[in-house]
């Protein structure tokens, strides 16, 4: 897993992607531009975060799920 470690915590790139979603960015292209991550990694990461229930996909865009919000909250504490 590239975005989520085996212990369930997001990696650095996973945290960047989740934070970008929290800030309202929804497309892979926007997130890649804002985080500086390569687009292929953002696409792969969003797929992984969605499968883990941390993000929801709506067409070509994504948003943070309630579990994603919760997880980000624990990281900032």
């Amino acid at each position: 897993m590239a975005c989520i470690s085996p212990d369930g915590k997001p990696t650095e790139s996973g945290t960047k992607t989740l934070s970008a979603l929290k800030s309202g960015l929804g497309s892979a292209e926007e997130i890649a531009k804002s985080t500086g991550l390569p687009l292929f990694r953002v696409r792969s990461g969003l797929r992984e975060l969605t499968q883990a229930g941390l993000a929801n996909q709506k067409g070509d865009t994504y948003e943070l799920s309630s579990r994603g919000v919760e997880l980000l909250g624990t990281l900032s504490n």
């Binding site: 590239a2 975005c3 292929f40 792969s44 797929r47 992984e48």
Partner: peptide, 8 residues
């Protein structure tokens, strides 16, 4: 760098 698809 994780699971990648060609379409990525």
């Amino acid at each position: 760098q994780g699971v990648l698809k060609l379409e990525d």
